[in-house]
Design a protein around this nucleic acid. Structure first.
Lengths: 140, 140
DNA sequence: CGGGATCCTTCTTGATACTG
DNA sequence: CAGTATCAAGAAGGATCCCG
C-alpha cells in the first residue's frame, strides 16, 4: 500500500510512488470510466446498451474510454460478424477487481455528498475557500 | 463540465445518482486531491510542507486544490498572524473518512499497476484498443 | 449497429511575476 | 511564507458527418 513515508526534514511524502498512483487515478478520473465499469459490472453488454445506460455520454467518449479500458485489460471487446454488427463488452477479472474500490468510492460519495454539499453552500456564504483569506488565529 | 441533460431512450442503469457520484469523483480526480489528502493524513502541515511533500505540484494548483478541499469541508485552514506568515492545513473528520476509500484505490493501483502496464504494452504490439478493430468472433 | 475522422470549444494545468 | 493575478499551452470533451 502506498502509505506516505515519514514526514520530516526536507520531507517528501510521495517519492516516486505517486507516478503509478496518478497514472491509475488518471484513468479512473477519466469522467466516464467509473460509470462504464459500474455499468459493465452487470455483465456483458453491447455498445448501444452501454451508451443507453449512461445518459450524457457522447459516442466519441464512449468509444475512447472503452478502448482505453480494453488496452489496460479491464474489459474485453468481442465483435460478431453478423448482419447488423454486434459488439459485446465485458469486464475481465482485472476489471472486476476494481469494482470493489470503485464501489467504496461511490459508497463514500453516497454517504457524504449531502454533507459536502452543505459545506460548500456554507462556504459560499462565509467566503471560506474563496477570495481573501481571513486570519483565523493569532500567535499569542 | 456541462452536466448533460437526459438524452432519450429507456435503458438507464445510472439514474440521477451519477450526478453526485460524478461530482465527488471529479474532485477526487482533480489530479492532486488524492496526493494532498494522503499527505495530510499524517497530520497538520503548513503550506510549504505540503508543497515540499508533493513533487511536481505548482503553487497555483496547490492553492486551488486546498481551497476546493476546504470548501468541501475536507480540510481546515488555520492562519497565524505571525511575523513570517504561517498557515496550517489539517484534515477534518470528513476528510479523514475519505482516507479509507482513497487508500483502497491506491491499494488497487499498487496491486495491479504492473499488470496494467503489461496489458498496455501487449496492446501496443497486437494493436488492441487502437486503430482498426478486428473481428474476433463470428456468428456461427 | 458501431464506430472513425474532424473540427471546435472549454477546462485544466503550468510557468511567471507580483504582493501582504 | 503564503499566497494572488495573469497568460498561454495542451488536454479533455462535445458535435457532426461519414463509412463498412
Amino acid at each position: 500500500m502506498a502509505t506516505p513515508r515519514k514526514i520530516s526534514g526536507p520531507c517528501q511524502a510521495w517519492p516516486k510512488d505517486s507516478a503509478y498512483i496518478r497514472e491509475v487515478l488518471d484513468r479512473i478520473g477519466e469522467k466516464w470510466t467509473v460509470l462504464i465499469i459500474s455499468t459493465l459490472s452487470a455483465g456483458s453488454l453491447r455498445y448501444s446498451d452501454v451508451q443507453a445506460s449512461i445518459p450524457g455520454i457522447s459516442q466519441r467518449m464512449l468509444t475512447q474510454t472503452l478502448k482505453h479500458l480494453e488496452r489496460d485489460g479491464l474489459i474485453t471487446r468481442t465483435a460478431y460478424a453478423e448482419v447488423p454488427p454486434r459488439v459485446e463488452y465485458e469486464l475481465t477479472d482485472l476489471g472486476r477487481s476494481l469494482i470493489d474500490a470503485v464501489t467504496a468510492m461511490a459508497g463514500w460519495a453516497a454517504a457524504h455528498h449531502t454533507e459536502i454539499a452543505n459545506n460548500r453552500a456554507a462556504s459560499e456564504l462565509t467566503g471560506v475557500g474563496r477570495g481573501k483569506a481571513a486570519i483565523s488565529a493569532t500567535a499569542d
